[in-house]
């Protein structure tokens, strides 16, 4: 049923940067020379299937150091360079909110989630800039809710305190925000317009902050909500044609 060759070519689709060993170490060590030679020859028959593969051979059978066919130089033994996240070295550019909206959102973020003890707050987590990106990428309903909600907060602030929301004391902000706080269950945010915005923004600001690098790398304290950590799924064999402009036309031919 399943020949050794099939087993090899399946392994060959492993990305070279995969942390998983392509072959268990034991099986590499235990691989008899004859087997290795067969696999190696199979690779020359079907080079495409062998790209990126590359179990290092058992010791005495090391192939010649050079020349190696030009597309087979990089292999599992090649060191993987260490990458850094852009946000660790760069500032995000504000693209979506106006400067007034951004100032309101920053003050709101600080009121909702200030630094508490050793746990960083929303501002240190870069949450306002993240939300500018996230909301700016979002469907229109979320964009409108944020834009209208931030504008409304600023207007109310000017009406009640004669200054922009961004300049309010916390006690003043409390008077605008607290009447709209609700408890709610997952997927069922309150529906009243201001309550919908206030509770959504609170939830988003918390999640963006708790899941930030600053929060995740701060010392753990009792009762602190943990940064989400989970099994991330890559795209699995993504559709090659779909992102292509002609894809739909190509596929839509009725039988």
């Amino acid at each position: 049923m399943k020949s050794g060759l099939e087993g090899q070519s399946k392994d060959a689709v492993h990305r070279p940067d995969s942390r998983e060993a392509i072959l268990p170490a034991e099986s590499v060590r235990g691989m008899r020379r004859r087997d290795f030679v067969r696999v190696f020859m199979a690779a020359t028959v079907a080079p495409a299937a062998f790209l990126g593969q590359t179990a290092p051979p058992p010791r005495p059978e090391l192939p010649a150091a050079a020349p190696v066919p030009w597309m087979r130089g990089i292999n599992r033994a090649t060191p993987v360079p260490e990458g850094a996240a852009a946000e660790t070295v760069a500032e995000a550019e504000v693209q979506f909110f106006t400067s007034t909206q951004m100032a309101t959102l920053s003050r709101l973020s600080d009121v909702f989630l200030p630094r508490i003890g050793t746990t960083p707050g929303a501002l240190e987590a870069g949450t306002p800039a993240f939300l500018d990106f996230f909301v700016g990428e979002s469907p229109q309903a979320r964009k409108t809710m944020y834009q209208d909600g931030l504008d409304w907060l600023d207007t109310e602030s000017k009406k009640q305190f004669a200054k922009p929301f961004a300049e309010l004391e916390t006690a003043q902000a409390d008077r605008l925000l607290k009447p709209w706080l609700r408890t709610w269950m997952t997927d069922h945010l309150p529906r009243e317009p201001h309550a919908a915005f206030i509770n959504t923004a609170h939830s988003d600001i918390r999640m963006a902050t708790v899941n930030s690098r600053a929060w995740g790398e701060a010392p753990d304290t009792a009762g602190r909500q943990p940064t989400q950590k989970g099994l991330y799924w890559s795209q699995i064999e993504p559709d090659m044609c779909w992102s292509h402009p002609g894809a739909n036309q190509h596929a839509a031919a009725p039988r």
Binding site: D204, S212, K229, W233
Partner: peptide, 21 residues
């Protein structure tokens, strides 16, 4: 073994939020 990897949310572009849309 090749399609999944454990990561913290801050190593993802949307900090754990569903990619919009």
């Amino acid at each position: 073994s090749k399609d999944t990897e454990v990561k913290p949310a801050y190593d993802l572009p949307y900090r754990g939020f569903v990619p919009p849309g």
